[in-house]
Design a protein around this nucleic acid. Structure first.
Lengths: 343, 343
DNA sequence: GTGAAAGCGCTAACAA
DNA sequence: TTGTTAGCGCTTTCAC
């Protein structure tokens, strides 16, 4: 069997308690004995049994991470940020993917609640009551969603949308389309709101093209509507959607950005792998992950702490190959043609 | 506090053991009491504490998954397969990403070993001795790597390479380049071996272009060598590399597949999002994940079982937009030009 | 500063 | 079939 406190205790000629203390509360023990114990411990390859420790301390040393779809390249970056930070604090991370099924989320929370010290809900789609239940059964941190006073890591969507709209407006676009994501997505609602707010001051008209799946296929199927709407630029709910749009446009012989500009959101790796590279609003994914863990650990440290429960992250528009000064597929064509902006 | 066996026991008017049995070994208890207990249990919202259970049974109900890079789109698919299957058997999954650092792998194994019932090592880069250590401290299943008798889920690389070479050969290519991945990658060695074996019978010449990072950037930086090698087709270590190659070629004004054919391996989502879509050897990622869990659970069930410890999965070439019948950038140009194959 | 004892929540022997 | 007892490995009072 594995080596236990007792083994170390015996080897070091002390009691189990002293071993325990030497490792968890080093100051409470005589330097000499402490060192002897520690040497013995790693000589024997002792590794405390976390389950046993958890049983008594009530802490598991685990944290749970629930997200809609690992296959969406947005999430792995967040996960990596979370992982790295968590491991540094000696936490392990359970990852659970709901396969875009909002109904599965709360179930996973319930299942995980007892096994972890806290749960990070990434872009959850669950209802506010479910969210409340989640926050009641576990220490929860939200990412990409705001709900009441539940601690959350958010992104400044309003500003991001403003950046996009101003950029397009500055290039001469006067009528831009938005391919929305799922109605149940909080991010989507934020983005819609941000676009609506930004569009007036920039003297741009917004055409909402409907709700689509937040995937490449969603983008593909949105092209029809975009073309009918007679816009000169299209903003996708996320990069996957934008990429789908680009792909379908290419298939139909419409060149991006010359004939139609496309802008994505997220800055997933694929966005810079395609030709032409996609202009996109970059979200600091790593930072979001790290911020989420920091917030969570802080809350675990001081449960009642009234730290500002929301952390807001900035976004940055990456102008790449896309946007042009308009050459509408239809009537009114402002001055200037084909001007490609690059980063 | 949370509700425990005792609470349920009291509520149902039985002893703790009976509660325990009613839930884990239902047949050993009188149907009437069993039902009463079960009703009481979920009335009170009882959820067994897995840590406590684990302490006595020696089982944690967790499995660990270690992989080099979640950001490589190959892995999320595998993870998803593993997750789904694991959750079905009521296992939770710890995911750990080593950030492509082979040195970190064994450390993670050691750290995780005590917290899980088994570990799945995905495309591990660790040395054989480390691998042996890993298999000694935990029940291990390898994915994409074979080492001694450690149970593994593998892919039929030889056949896959044959498919690629025959396809290219059939289209008239006589000289193809291979952009290799890391020297320490077992998959890479398999692929090299497979290519070498396949190349003779197909009357094709193989030019090995050197080892590169298994990333988009790796592909980008491999183009130089590919161009110098005077080949008409290039096979990338994986899709990321192939995509990097395509991108750099486009930048240099070389069209794919007309002037140079590019083939990837893996079939990651991005491969079908670019224009032209990438021809690639598809690896059954989900299946690999599921197979790994199946194998692991089977081994956990019957530790000494001599089931065939290796499971081999087939691959399938997805011919998409890429390959053409050669139009070498240099001297000898066989008959036929620009013929695009589609799936 | 250190040891003895108790017990976290659960299951596995052993009795009854 | 059920209850009683013991103890998994650890931390934590509470004495000393």
């Amino acid at each position: 069997m594995a080596v236990t406190v007792r083994d170390v205790a015996k080897a070091a000629g002390v009691s189990a308690s002293t071993v325990s203390r030497s490792l968890s509360l080093p100051d409470m023990v005589d330097p000499a004995t402490r060192e002897r114990v520690q040497r013995m411990a790693d000589h024997l390859g002792y590794r405390p049994n976390r389950a046993a420790r958890g049983l008594i301390t009530g802490r598991t040393g685990n944290i749970g991470l629930i997200l809609p779809d690992l296959a969406n390249p947005f999430f792995p970056s967040v996960v990596k940020g979370i992982q790295k930070q968590a491991h540094q604090s000696d936490y392990s991370v359970f990852v659970a993917d709901t396969d875009e099924d909002p109904g599965a989320e709360i179930g996973l929370v319930r299942a995980l609640a007892k096994q972890v010290d806290g749960i990070i809900l990434c872009s959850p789609r669950m209802s506010p009551p479910e969210l409340r239940e989640a926050a009641a059964v576990a220490q929860v941190v939200l990412v990409n969603r705001r709900s009441g006073t539940i601690p959350a890591v958010l992104v400044d969507s309003a500003d991001g949308m403003r950046q996009i709209v101003e950029h397009l407006g500055g290039l001469g676009h006067r009528r831009i389309g938005y391919v929305a994501g799922p109605r149940s997505s909080w991010s989507n609602r934020q983005r819609v709101r941000g676009l609506r707010a930004a569009v007036g001051p920039a003297q741009v008209e917004l055409v909402e093209l409907g709700n689509f799946s937040p995937t490449f296929e969603g983008g593909v199927s949105a092209v029809e509507a975009a073309l009918l709407a007679d816009v000169t630029a299209v903003v996708g709910y996320n990069d996957l959607v934008a990429l789908g749009i680009c792909s379908r446009l290419a298939t139909r012989g419409i060149t991006v950005p010359d004939q139609l500009s496309v802008v994505g959101i997220d800055d997933i790796p694929t966005a810079s792998m395609v030709q032409p590279a996609l202009t996109t609003l970059s979200i600091p994914k790593d930072s979001a992950g790290r911020a989420a863990i920091d917030l969570l650990l802080q809350l675990l440290g001081e449960p009642g702490s009234r730290t500002p429960p929301h952390r807001q992250l900035p976004t940055q528009l990456l102008v790449r190959h896309t946007t042009a000064v308009v050459s509408s597929s239809s009537a009114t064509r402002p001055p200037g043609r084909r001007r490609t902006a690059r980063r």
